[in-house]
Design a protein around this nucleic acid. Structure first.
Lengths: 209, 209, 209, 209
DNA sequence: CATGAATGAGTATTCATTCAT
DNA sequence: AATGAATGAATACTCATTCAT
């Protein structure tokens, strides 16, 4: 039992952390359901039963992976909010931080993206829905504040904008390659360019106002 | 055997179509792997073995669902392109058509979104990758043309913009509710507003021009 | 699902009944835990997975076996009580009925004896404790009535006597052989002889009174 | 290896005895099969692997427990027989000694009762069957002698009476509570009362004489 | 068209036991 | 004496699929 409890957050003690990283990669690649416990064990060079010396179930591996990742991510968000940069800079910082988290933890983000809906039905993963709510609140606050201060257009459907942003940012994990030529910053910058100013040219801005 | 071949495209012959629709809904809700043949059979009020009188495998059900949906969707895209509306109008039409397909075939889109990566590894689903290429070419053409004609900003990374658009549009299937207050057109309009002009206000439009 | 529901009591429909009888015999011989699902399947000449076409778990087999047996047994007890034979005759009838049930359903009695304590911890087997209480009430009523009418000795610790009788009767399943020379009636008669009059000779009954 | 041999009988050397006592309690409560080596280790506050420093297997723990208990019990029986008290007093003494052993070693008796049948199939537990035979011989001798001397009724089926007594006495371990209000002597006395004189009142003792 | 019985390969998990440290 | 990591064999159960009726 003692070995099976996650020791705070430091990603566990040696072997445990290695195994979690392996599991995370496989869950991300093949999906949680299609990744067998044997797959993970084999990747680690041990027998499937031996995994249970470290974790009490496949589920608890996913739990530990997601919990740790989300704690870190939302810690970062909290820091950004605490800095009180104003809506536009806050929005930029949150987008950048999100793409950076895709860069640093692609497997974890992929699991969060692909398995959350399914896992959230289990009691033990109730925090997934909580985090979703938290994220939604964060964005609604940023956007509402921006509209109030005049930084963002007044005609926005905030809820809809939030959804578009959330989806575009996180789904990027499907194609973003941490080892590719584009850094997380590059991608964030491009996206912010589009999000803030659109892709259309401004020939006759007078016309629209 | 004769009955097990999809009879062209007319959505199958009665019972067959019913069963496919049921399967599609379940695949969309629970995912392809987590939906058991028994789930589908039970939903249809028959025993699981009886399904094999209509289809020769679970895979071939997904195949038929996706093939039919994609044929229809790309037919629509082809019509739009054939109309030669110019880059901006074409872009708008493609976005609208995509949201409309989410509205009309939410289950099919969801399956396409969630299972394509996994299914595409099977030979029989090779057309999924082809369709993806087709879609990518479509968008690259629209965007490149738009940049050339000056409709779109010249500093865009076209490949990246394509990805952002693709992701945002299709992932909307996760939250879009066909029975909700927002029509596909409403959503498309809002999205196009953001995509084309951005969410930021234009304090100094002079600067950009 | 439809096939997995016990159809009242008639011991199921054909195959189902056969399998239950096999399972009962094995549970009785080796114990519930040591009897593997494969053991049962092999005894039936099928593969272990095929058992799940008929029952949804090993537990539910034991459940069905015990439930059916106890329903029958307590039905018999109820009839005896309803006949209002007076304490002594009632006691005799209950003892005889019990030995007869050992004769007719040795496997079921053995399972009841050996596994009840363990199974009763599971919610689904809550009725086991209920039946135990019912049985205890039955005996306490018989004995108390007998003491009141003077049929039984007044110095008896009724609770203790009940336990002795219960244990002796049921544990007989461990050695009673339905195919042996002693019928259930023979055994019941011998036991009743001892229970009612003792094994000691009555040289000087005056002395005791 | 040297430490893994039971050191005569003195209940082991400290730690060893403690562990055996723990194991005995768990075996009695949950049964031998359902008690895991980890259960025992955890109860002792060590890891399961560490138990193998003391014992070479789970089986050998049960072996040591039963062997020690039976040696002591049959020692007591031998003393009683050696005292040559006559059939009735001998019977009383054996019954009392048996209930006393339930009082002093409830866990051991429970294991003997519940696991003997299963364990006796293993070579190393061959002595269980021997002890059973010994016990049967003891009782048959007492009862036969009693019938011969006229102490017991002549119409008894000795083998049957032996079984009834054996069962009733040992199965009492299932409900007897060493810390309850009834002492082993109380229970023995009540049981002997029933066994010797029956529970029925003597309306016409003349008839029997 | 559908049933009901079965297959066979796989899946997570358990557990007694071993052994280097 | 004890730990911690691992083995290997077994266990209950699942599920897509087949096929005689």
């Amino acid at each position: 039992m003692s070995t099976k409890t996650s020791t705070g957050r430091q990603s566990g003690t040696g072997r445990r952390a290695e195994l979690l990283a392996l599991a995370a990669r496989l869950f991300a690649e093949r999906g949680f359901v299609l990744t067998t416990v044997r797959d993970i064990a084999e990747a680690a060079g041990i027998l499937s039963g031996s995994l249970y010396h470290h974790f009490d179930s496949k589920e608890s591996m996913a739990d530990e992976i997601l919990r740790g990742f989300l704690d870190e991510l939302f810690g970062t968000y909290a820091e950004i909010v605490a800095a009180e940069l104003g809506p536009r800079k806050t929005l930029e910082a949150v987008v950048v931080a999100s793409f950076e988290s895709i860069h640093a933890h692609p497997a974890e983000v992929a699991i969060y993206q692909n398995e959350a809906k399914h896992l959230a039905q289990l009691e033990r993963f109730a925090y997934l829905d909580e985090r979703n709510r938290e994220f939604r609140d964060l964005w609604n606050a940023i956007l509402a504040e921006g509209v109030r201060t005049g930084a963002f257009r007044a005609d926005l459907d905030i809820e809809l904008v939030y959804r578009f942003i959330r989806d575009t940012v996180w789904v990027a994990v499907r194609w973003y390659n941490p080892d590719g030529p584009l850094s997380a910053h590059d991608v964030a910058e491009q996206y912010l360019g589009i999000l803030l100013d659109g892709i259309a040219t401004r020939r006759r801005p007078v016309r629209k106002g």
